[in-house]
Write a protein that binds this DNA or RNA. Sequence first.
DNA 1: AAGTGGTCTAGACCACCGT
DNA 2: CGGTGGTCTAGACCACTTC
Lengths: 236, 236
Amino acid sequence: MAAKYRVIVDTLEKELIEGVYIETKKIPTEEELMSRFGVSRNTIRKAIEVLVSRGYLYQVQGSGIFVREAAFKGYVNLERLKGLTTDFPTNKIETKIIDFKLTHADKDLAQKMRCEEGSSVYFVNRLRMVDGKPFGVEYSYFNKAIVTYLNEEIIQKSIYDYIRYDLNLTIGFADRIIYADIISDKDAKILGLPKNSPALINDNIVFLNNGEVFDVSRTIHHYRNVKLLKLSNFRE
Amino acid sequence: MAAKYRVIVDTLEKELIEGVYIETKKIPTEEELMSRFGVSRNTIRKAIEVLVSRGYLYQVQGSGIFVREAAFKGYVNLERLKGLTTDFPTNKIETKIIDFKLTHADKDLAQKMRCEEGSSVYFVNRLRMVDGKPFGVEYSYFNKAIVTYLNEEIIQKSIYDYIRYDLNLTIGFADRIIYADIISDKDAKILGLPKNSPALINDNIVFLNNGEVFDVSRTIHHYRNVKLLKLSNFRE
DNA sequence: AAGTGGTCTAGACCACCGT
DNA sequence: CGGTGGTCTAGACCACTTC
């Protein structure tokens, strides 16, 4: 049984994406939402708070709840980490597997993954494409003690969906380091870029909700095809 | 009179930075915090929620509230946008003013700033240094209708502190686009980089809490001296 | 003054973790 | 099982915006 506030979040998020409140740039008041969904004020406020943190809305005391018109399209939204499929719902996503094997964690990886050196890990190297354009090269390690099984069919699709819905694990949080560098010759070739092009690089350490690391990855993004969007809130 | 939960946030944040909970990697239970601060459970939960969103903590149902050990040092934390002084509390921050003038918004800027074309805007071009190393070149426009006065002395220090504490405005939220590109010859010279180096670029549109845009800026970061840190939460 | 969001309380029951 | 966080309610009072 899903929590009430999550149902409200999903409902309003869908309406926001559909553009229901585009004209008024304002959504109904808390009072109106309370009677629409038949819940208490705190439950409405909890739902709104989630939508604010996702960058959809902002609240003005004494005035109302407004729609935040950010240019989402074409950007990777750092607040909604559900994979390329969610960021580009209307685009064609392709995945090419470059390498896939079971291997062992070296010292550096073991430290990042908070596991023993030599532990079994899956290595996945994929090229992601959006609308036929190279998007990024991904080098990813999964802790086999947690992600017990992977195969080519699974990694061809969404690994995260598999982890969530098939392995029934709850993804908790991630540390992401974002920087630019000169691309390696190998990655330049994969992405179809000239040598010594810039690269937008993203190093991730991804945790389950209990604090265990299950994924350590690095993505080399095509610097002309990828822009990240960060929607910040200062209020808190 | 500051809100109770804000006082709790400030107190716990200070303790977390001081490393009070480093050994146990765990902070007291909600019940213990309730009696320590003499507030209701919801107030404690509100405070914890803020610290979770700032990347300090994570919660595990049935188990407790844990310290998130992220490598903060040397990174610009995207969750805590209070300027370089906060991200590098122990480092020496320098600011060199390259250009400063009152000018008018062109069409592109007016669109981003949601103001009339030709409106008065302050233009500020600064080089920021951390520990003597070039950090980034900042090109910033402030809407004069909101930020009514600026001078060299103010922009030499923290413009944001001035806006907050002297002009008494409340900063609300920001849209930040992050990408990589080939640096311009001009910026390369300023940052002391070879021609055609990569650059980590950050375009910002910053809003007051009532939704008005007061700042539109672009920062060209030194690609070897700057890394951004994004602490994501999947739970919501 | 009326409307709307911001803060806070007290209490209830559920879900999950560990012993 | 007890401990701990997750969800939800009903109601109060305050702060700010708008008219």
